[in-house]
Amino acid sequence: MNRLSPFNIVSLTLGFAFLYIPMLILVIYSFNASKLVTVWAGFSTKWYGELLQNEAMIDAAWVTLRVAFFSSTIATVLGTMAAYVLIRRGPFFGRTLFSGMIYAPLVMPEVITGLSLLLLFIAIGLARGVLTIVLSHTTFSMCFVSVVVSSRLVTFDRSLEEAALDLGASAFEAFRLVTLPIIAPAVISGWLLAFTLSLDDLVIASFTSGPSATTLPIKIFSSVRLGVSPEINALSTIIIAIVTVGVLTASIVSKRQISRRLREEAQAG
């Protein structure tokens, strides 16, 4: 469909302006010298300096990164297993319940998930802290990983696995040597998705964290409630920059891989 009408061009321009202008304003005003966020008073990087001095913020950032790393790693393992089971295994007892439990957390309002997990931790007497946040984040992000991985598993040729099995590989070897390399890009993007979901989560972390563990979103939320502050703008800019660089790098790497594969296939053919 290569027929861009003026209407299409206008809707694309307006759409992307709507998506990007708010973030652009946020970034520009993080370099504002004035404490007032809406009045421009010259270029300055002092808010970045103040942010780096803010030890509570840095502690929170550290907790957040640790939680995100552990939860996304466990979630990737569990989510990949779940996807493999759902796509590759035939019917098993309670399959409907299993697939329901994979899809429901994707849309479940966070207040419900957060509340229910907190009540579970209290019922079993688990002290709230980094561990409980990791458990909670793993639970909902493994579902996202599983959806990403199963969409890749659906499209790839099953006969490759069967060939490996016929040639004498064990089921685990076939998975490690054939399936895993092919689904690796999906597993990696699942991990990245789980990582950012964890970095970003406010509601579930608020319910399941204790006084010993404050994550960055909890910190940001409590300061934002008091109004706009240039320090938060600076922090947001750093986060936006990291995400942009990360996503762009990931997409360039995967594009290179695809074009290399296409080249190799062309040579082989």
Partner: peptide, 13 residues
């Protein structure tokens, strides 16, 4: 991929 909280925050200003 960018923080949900930050995108909501952007609209306050």
């Amino acid at each position: 991929w960018t923080s949900f909280l930050i995108r909501v925050y952007a609209w306050i200003g």
